[in-house]
Design a protein around this nucleic acid. Structure first.
Length: 355
DNA sequence: AACTCGGGGGC
DNA sequence: GCCCCAGAGTT
């Protein structure tokens, strides 16, 4: 009995064919070669390498008898060069110990150097239709969203959970097609950023869609800690005065004080920052940029705050609504985030730190 | 479980 | 700058 999700994926897959250069081959050697080349590699980058390798080494015997130098040279520019060394070594093992014939079960295949759980499952299912799910980055993402699973995918329990889930979904008679469908779906629809949920044939049964958690799936134990934010402060100076404001929203540093802030989704250069500050009326028509302080960083439990501070002198006539005008030497009496406190101390301001 | 291995593209 | 990419090997 076929799982409905597998049926949907396979139907979608058949309606949206993807031209992958290695899919014209169905022999284990070509599949193995393509899978090694494509590990942690984008299709656009790896395709030409596959064709070059297939051209230079049409069979496992050609690869095995080639000098390692030649294999490395063909690999040049692809990265992770141990893949090339293991590829060559495994070709020689296959010729010497296996008469050039691939073993047919995942456990046997995974004994070969350079082949881990994913690649073993991919070869076994694509070449021999062995019923096992090939769990790559796409599969982790798609499955974690469909079932709204927050188990970290980079934990041993997570790997086990997703492997078993994948195995339970696939149609044993069509494991290769299922695996291909799952990966293509992840690459084209259920993408890491801005997934195409509006065009998704599985939207109805996607738990993370209904729970609005697609942006935080899959969970990784490492990345859970350090989502970057980019804070750009404007240290405006009018003689001995400056402007500060209280952080009031339900966010980090609530009720602490700060300079006028522009938060951006990525690092911006000085010109762009000034442009945005003008748009928000943080600046008068005329001003003097005194200095840009950069390389300020604060690491929180789950965030890294990359901070820039633009130091600007403004004319006497300027005033900034919605912010408190304060004597620079007196701002130490207000609570500031550590990174701003540190900055002020470095500037010789606000010596009365009490944190 | 944590670290290391790369180059490229996206934002 | 950091994430992500048809992950795996070593410590």
């Amino acid at each position: 009995m076929n799982h409905p999700i597998a049926n949907h994926l396979i139907h979608w897959h058949e309606a949206h064919p993807r031209a992958l250069v290695w899919k014209q081959y169905s022999d284990a050697y070509s599949i193995w070669l393509s899978e090694i080349i494509m590990q942690q590699t984008r299709v656009e980058q790896g395709s030409a390498y596959f064709e070059a390798f297939k051209n230079a080494f049409p069979t496992v015997f050609d690869l095995a008898k080639a000098p390692l130098d030649e294999v490395i040279r063909l690999w040049e520019g692809l990265g992770y060069y141990s893949r090339a060394r293991n590829l060559h070594l495994t070709a020689q093992v296959l010729v010497k110990d296996y008469q050039g014939v691939f073993p047919k079960t995942p456990n046997e295949i995974q004994q070969l150097k350079g082949i881990g759980p994913y690649t073993a499952a991919a070869i076994a299912s694509f070449a021999f239709n062995y019923p096992i799910a090939a769990i790559d980055g796409n599969a982790y993402r798609v499955l974690s969203r469909l079932f709204d699973i927050d188990t970290p995918i980079d934990s041993s329990s997570g790997r086990k959970q997703f492997q078993e889930l994948g195995n339970s979904l696939l149609d044993p008679a069509k494991s290769g097609t299922f695996n291909q469908a799952l990966m293509n779906f992840g690459a084209l629809v259920c993408t890491p950023k801005k997934p195409k949920c509006n065009d998704c044939v599985l939207q109805q049964q996607c738990l993370s869609f209904s729970n609005q958690t697609t942006d935080s799936r899959p969970v990784k134990s490492k990345s859970l800690k350090k989502t970057p934010r980019y804070f750009n402060y404007f240290f405006l100076q009018q003689g001995k005065d400056t402007w500060i404001g209280e952080r009031k929203s339900a966010d980090i540093w609530q009720n602490l004080y700060e300079f006028p802030l522009i938060e951006t989704s990525r690092p911006l250069d000085l010109d762009s920052l000034v442009e945005q500050a003008q748009a928000k009326n943080f600046l008068p028509a005329e001003f003097t940029i005194k200095k840009l302080h950069t390389d300020l960083k604060q690491i929180l439990s789950h965030r890294i705050i990359y901070t820039k501070i633009v130091e600007i002198e403004v004319p006497k006539a300027f005033s900034l609504p919605h912010f408190q005008k304060t004597a620079i030497q007196a701002i130490g009496s207000q609570p500031f985030p550590r990174i701003l406190k540190k900055f002020l101390t470095q500037q010789g301001i606000s010596a009365n730190s009490n944190q």
